[in-house]
Write a protein that binds this DNA or RNA. Structure first.
Lengths: 208, 208
DNA sequence: TAGATTGTTAATCGATTAACAATC
DNA sequence: TAGATTGTTAATCGATTAACAATC
């Protein structure tokens, strides 16, 4: 389950490599790449080794082919279509977040239970929940975002899974029950703040 | 560094215990508590043991004293005042998130560089950045949220740290450079989606 | 008592770090 | 060549899981 870590690092390497490329770099050493993302050079090499990403002794890694390989590993060569359920403040902020388009992620539909929200907003259509099934099937959606109130989250989750969604990013502060093969990532804002409060109050204990 | 995990779990136990209490439970077993948050009973007992949180053999854990102790460990007995810098979509969604008030977290001020945003909105005053120092000092702020564009994030971070902030929740997709003793938690939406894309494309590799 | 549960110790597992041979 | 860097193996570290004694 904590192979999560290596994937998160790969996505960070990727973002950093794009930056270096834009700055005109052709190659990069594990030392510099590691520093740019806050990892050790050994960690970088180990991670690359895990996916058979090869560099050149003495010359480091060629950015172009490396990026190509990482994109392949991460599945970033194709545009990923996702949907967002729940058009509250967080859902709205999510669909307006500008970075997705440059990252081959396309938010193709939003959903809300409230009829007053069913219209075109900011270039994205907000659908009633009754269209959830058709749109997921029609676009073969694999990834969905839940930004509903917590009371609705599990029910929406069940429907998403039933319609074929395989990964869910969940903003609702609940533990979603899903089959083993479904991926759930939780972004619980209150939980994040709470854990920071712990560290602020226990600076000496930070190492424990 | 990955003592993060135990703190995150403690905050989840806490939230679940509040739920059980509201449902009328007086005591709870490690099995039930674990199930409610997606952890094993052994993990629950181990975590409690780490903080000397005691239960009763055969009778499980008494919810009231347990909550009291967890609140103490997590520093949830006092109201934590936080600030948010950057009133874009995410910043606005954050300050409007309704769960903080019930969790002893008080967002006392918001900041933005744009003068057109400097006014009272949704009950919270949006200040110019020139007031950052005074407000942090005046309220002894320890925790701040960065929801600025990525280009501004490091500069804001430096100022926050200079003024005494000790923990930062960062929504900007950059690696913030901070002194060792400062806690940074990153919530990178694109990164979250990217890692989910990996799993969706590599279901068989999920275990690696 | 018998059965069930806690609390802790030991075993396992996996991830990170260190070391170093290969080689450009 | 000498120095620097990769790639991999070995060592360490820590977290999770299993086992089980204590005991209610």
């Amino acid at each position: 389950m904590e192979a999560k870590a290596i994937v998160k690092r790969l996505t960070k390497y990727r973002a950093s490599l794009v930056n270096f490329k834009e700055l005109g770099f052709k190659t990069i050493y594990s030392t510099n790449l590691g520093e740019s993302v806050g990892e050790s050079p050994e960690q970088v090499r180990k991670d690359f080794s895990r996916f058979s990403l090869k560099g050149n002794k003495k010359a480091g890694y060629e950015i172009d082919p490396l990026l190509k390989s990482i994109n392949y590993v991460l599945g970033k060569n194709i545009i990923q279509k996702i949907i967002v359920v729940g058009m509250g403040n967080i859902g709205k902020a999510f669909i307006q977040y500008k970075w997705f388009s440059s990252q081959n992620v396309s938010i193709i539909a939003a959903f809300d239970i409230d009829p007053s929200k069913h219209n075109k907003k900011m270039g994205l259509h907000v659908h009633p929940l009754s269209q959830l099934k058709d749109i997921i099937h029609g676009h073969n959606i694999q990834i969905a975002v839940i930004a509903t109130p917590d009371s609705a989250a599990q029910e929406i989750c069940d429907r998403l899974v039933a319609y074929g969604v395989r990964a869910i990013l969940n903003f609702a502060p609940v533990v979603l029950k899903v089959p083993d093969e479904i991926i759930v990532h939780n972004l619980d804002l209150v939980n994040e703040i709470n854990s920071m409060i712990y560290y602020v109050n226990n600076h000496k204990l930070y190492s424990l």
